[in-house]
Design a protein around this nucleic acid. Structure first.
Lengths: 171, 171
DNA sequence: ACCTTATTTTTAATCATTTCAAATTTTTTG
DNA sequence: CAAAAAATTTGAAATGATTAAAAATAAGGT
C-alpha cells in the first residue's frame, strides 16, 4: 500500500488522534442510530467507529484506505471491505459525499445539509493541500447553461488546481 | 471488457468509421512528424493510427480501451499497452488532454491551443451524452478566489451533471 | 434466550492500468 | 546502403484500488 504524494495520510494522522472516542458535530449518537434504522441499516460498532473518524476530521478528504490504515495504527480491527462498504452506506444515507481529487483514490467528505450543490475545492499542486470553498458562485453560469444548452443542472463538480498561499510565498 | 452505461462506445463506432485513413484538422502530417521529433519521440505507424482516430473524432472523449477496441474491430493489430503509452505521449506533447468523466475510465480529448484553461463538460446522467462548453465564464470567480484565498489558479475542472435537452423533452 | 436477517471477515476475483523482457522497428552512423 | 544504437511495440505478467462470495458473527424483534 502506497500513500499518494499529497501526504494526506500524515495530515490525517496528526489531526485524527482522538477520532474514535468522542462524538461531536450536529448529529448526536441517538439520532445517528435512528437514522441508520430509518434507512434500514443496523448501527454497528464498526459503522460507529468509521463514522466517528469522519466526523472528527471534517476538513480531511479521507479515502477508504486512509481510514483502514488509521484503524490499523490504532490497533482497532476492522476489515478493509467493511470500510469500503460502510462508506457506500454512509453515502446512501447522505452523510458523506464522494469527492474525486484526481489522485487515484475515491475520497469522502461530510455532507453539509445546508449546501444543495457540492462545494468546490482548491488543490495545491505543490503541497497537495485541499481547501474547501463554501460559496457557490455558479448560479449565473448555470442559468446561462440552461438558456444556451437547454441542460438542466442537478449537480456540479468544480476543482481548481494551482498554488496555495503558503507555496506562493515560498517561491 | 465491459463498456460503461454511457454507450460512448457505440457512438464512437458510428462516428469513427473512416478514422484511420484521412488526416484533417489544423495539424498536417508533416508537421506532426516534426512535432514528435521536437519532443524526442519517433513517429511510428501505431502512433499515427492512434492520433488519427483522435483527430477524426474531436467530439468524443475516448478511453484507451475505446481506441483499442476500435482497432480490434477494424482488424488492425495494436496492443493495449501501446495505446495506453501513446496516449501518455500525446498528453506530454499537449496534443490531447486527460478528462475524468467519473465513469471509471481515463478519457482523452484533443487539446485546443486557443483555450488556456480546460473547458467544461455537461454530463447527462440519463443518456450519458457529453457536451463541451467552450466559453470559460470563470474569470470572475477565479479573481475572487485569488483575492479571498491567496490561491493562484493554474487550471480548473468543471463538470455539470444533469439532464440534456433530449432527455428533458422525453419526460 | 431464540430466530431471522444483516453485517463482518477473510479470501479470492475484477478491472483498469503499468511494467517487464524479448522482439521489432526506426534513426543514426560509418 | 548496411550495421549499430536507440526507441518502440508486443504479449504476458504484475499492480493496486475496489468488489464479490461464502462462512462466521452479531443485531433486533418475538
Amino acid at each position: 500500500m502506497k500513500y499518494n504524494e499529497l501526504d494526506l495520510y500524515y495530515q490525517f494522522i496528526n489531526n485524527a488522534v482522538q477520532g474514535v472516542d468522542t462524538m461531536k458535530n450536529e448529529l448526536e449518537t441517538s439520532n445517528i442510530k435512528e437514522k441508520f434504522h430509518q434507512f434500514g441499516y443496523k448501527y454497528t460498532e464498526q459503522r460507529r467507529l468509521i463514522l466517528n473518524v469522519l466526523l472528527e476530521n471534517p476538513d480531511l478528504h479521507l479515502s477508504s484506505e486512509d481510514i483502514y490504515e488509521y484503524f490499523k495504527m490504532k490497533k482497532i480491527d476492522i476489515s478493509q471491505s467493511t470500510v469500503y462498504r460502510t462508506l457506500i452506506v454512509l453515502e446512501k444515507m447522505k452523510i458523506v459525499r464522494k469527492v474525486n481529487l484526481d489522485d487515484g483514490f475515491t475520497r469522502y467528505e461530510l455532507f453539509s445539509p445546508d449546501e444543495d450543490h457540492a462545494h468546490h475545492h482548491l488543490i495545491c499542486t505543490e503541497c497537495g493541500s485541499i481547501t474547501d470553498i463554501k460559496n457557490d458562485l455558479l448560479e449565473d453560469l448555470e442559468r446561462q447553461i440552461l438558456d444556451d444548452y437547454d441542460f438542466e443542472i442537478k449537480d456540479h463538480c468544480l476543482k481548481f488546481f494551482g498554488l496555495c498561499k503558503k507555496c506562493r510565498n515560498q517561491k
